[in-house]
Amino acid sequence: MKQVLLPGVAAVLLAAAFIAARPFHTGEPLSKPSAAGYKIGDEATDFKLKNVDGNFVSLSGYKTAKGFIVIFTCNECPYAKAYEDRIIALDKKYKPEGYPVIAINPSDPVIQPSDAFSLMQKRARDKGFTFPYLVDEGQAVYPQYGALRTPHVFVLQKEDGRNIVKYIGAIDNNHEDADDASEKYVENAVNALLSNKKVPLETTVAVGCGIKPRG
C-alpha cells in the first residue's frame, strides 16, 4: 500500500509545485540584457550580400581597401534619411583613402515594406548612392555585428587580412543638422586609423530606429 501511495502522493505534490511555480517563473524578466555583438578589437565576419545592382558584394572583394565603413541603414527611418547625404560624403571622402562605405539594409521587407528590394534600388538611384547598398537577406548579418538601429556604423580596419572592429556607433553628434555637428565620430575614427593612431572615441550611442527581427 505504501509503495502504491507514495508515487501517487509524490505526483500530486509535484503537480502542485509545478502549478504553484508557474506564475512566478513564466513571467518575462523586467530588464533584458543588451544584444550580443562585436566589441572593439573583434574580427568582423565577411559576408556575401546582394547589392541593389543585382551583384553580390563581399569585403574580400576589396583587395586594395585598408578598411571599411560598414553602415546599417534603411530607406525610411528619419534618422537614416537625415544621414544619407553625410553617408555619401563619407564614401566620397574616404573611398579614395582606402575606406569605402558599405551600406547594409537589415530590415525584413515583410515587417517593413518600405525596405523592399525594388524600393532600395529606387532610393539608391534617387539619392545617387556611390556605395553598395546591400540586402541582409534573412537578417543573418546584422545580429552578428550587433547592429541595433539605423544608422549604426562599424568602422573596420584590415589587419593581416582580417577585418578588425575599430569604431562602433553614430556618424556624428547631430542627426538634425550636419553643420551643427561638433563631434564627427566616424571621420575622427577613420582619420586616426589613416594616420596610425588610436581611435579617440571608440564607441558612441545614439537614438535611431530599432531594427526589428522577424518572428
Binding site: S31, R149, N173, N174, E176, E183, V205, V207, G208, C209
Partner: peptide
C-alpha cells in the same frame, strides 16, 4: 538634447544603446 546623446543615453542606463522605445521605472 540631440548633441549630447552620447552623454545622456549612458547616464540613463549603461546598457542602453539608444533604442526606442525604452522604458525606465
Amino acid at each position: 538634447d540631440n548633441k549630447r546623446m552620447n552623454e545622456w543615453i549612458p547616464a540613463m542606463d549603461s546598457q542602453w544603446q539608444g533604442n526606442l522605445p525604452s522604458t525606465f521605472v
